[in-house]
């Protein structure tokens, strides 16, 4: 077992993840199905929220992964800038669509949950708003990747965008917090349910979160492999044309 940087070698990455992928995927499936089935069928209704509390097993994990995926992209971008390992840049690229889908799930479940609870599909609640902005950041990041033909240029530009975007995403988070309190004098609609959920809801939630994390890892492994292969193929095709 050498240093962690050995896995920056694309071949090594593919062989290692090939070995890990079935295990991670199986675990992800078990945890996801387990957590969601447990949550959906075997937990009681909340006395205030009724059965809508069951949405928590989708909403909280996806929201968590939406942020963590961006964090992972940020770290991967930094590694690319500092050490210039191609796998790192490609992993960031691979993670972006996953993060975007997670953000979308969080937004959709949030809206569906908000409809019966708050009486409106969309409330300009600071958290909802920040997630919408995060979604826009994901879109911009993916669009920039797609728009640039040269791989290294694209990796450089998107990683810088990711860094700058992270700072602005954080700023927006605070700005949005400030902005809505300015309108509503303190949020009357708190979404902080995870702070006071009872044990009955807590354990299936944990399993479900673990499932989402594993799912994310499995997807990033798989998609990074695809990106590595796509890059290699472009290089090979370019070499063929040179002949």
């Amino acid at each position: 077992m050498g240093s962690i940087w050995e896995y920056a070698n694309p071949k090594k990455f593919i062989t290692t993840t090939d070995r890990l992928l079935p295990w991670v995927s199986a675990l992800a499936l078990v945890a996801l199905v387990g957590g969601l089935v447990w949550g959906f069928f075997f937990t009681p209704d909340d006395y205030k929220q009724g059965s809508t509390v069951k949405i928590i097993y989708l909403h909280v994990p996806s929201a968590l992964m939406a942020i963590n995926a961006w964090m992972m992209m940020l770290v991967a971008s930094l590694i690319w800038i500092v050490r210039r390992h191609h796998v790192s840049a490609l992993a960031a690229r691979a993670a972006a669509p996953v993060g975007a889908v997670m953000t979308l799930i969080a937004l959709i479940t949030g809206a569906i949950w908000g409809q019966p609870m708050w009486g409106t599909w969309w409330e300009w609640d600071p958290r909802l708003t920040s997630f919408l902005i995060l979604f826009l950041f994901y879109l911009g990041y993916m669009a920039l990747w797609a728009a640039i033909e040269d791989d290294d240029t694209a990796a450089d530009l998107t990683s810088i965008l990711c860094l700058v975007g992270s700072v602005f995403a954080l700023l927006s988070r605070y700005a949005v917090n400030f902005w809505n309190q300015g309108l509503h004098q303190g949020a009357s609609l708190s979404m902080d349910k995870e702070e006071n959920v009872a044990d009955v809801f807590y354990y299936p939630l944990l399993v479900s979160i673990a499932g989402f994390i594993l799912l994310f890892i499995a997807l990033v492994f798989l998609r990074t492999q695809t990106e590595i292969r796509a890059r290699r193929m472009r290089a090979l095709l370019a070499r063929e044309r040179m002949k």
């Binding site: 902005i133 826009l136 950041f137 879109l139 911009g140 669009a143 920039l144 728009a147 640039i148 240029t153 530009l157 810088i160 965008l161 700058v164 975007g165 602005f168 995403a169 700023l171 927006s172 605070y174 700005a175 949005v176 400030f178 902005w179």
Partner: peptide
């Protein structure tokens, strides 16, 4: 600067810049 070399950079430019404008606009 991000989109300078792209042929149809205009729309992409808006998509990239507008989220970055959020804090300034809000404050």
């Amino acid at each position: 600067a991000l989109t300078v070399g792209l042929k149809r950079g205009g729309l992409l430019l808006s998509l990239l810049v507008l989220p970055l404008y959020v804090p300034t606009l809000i404050f």
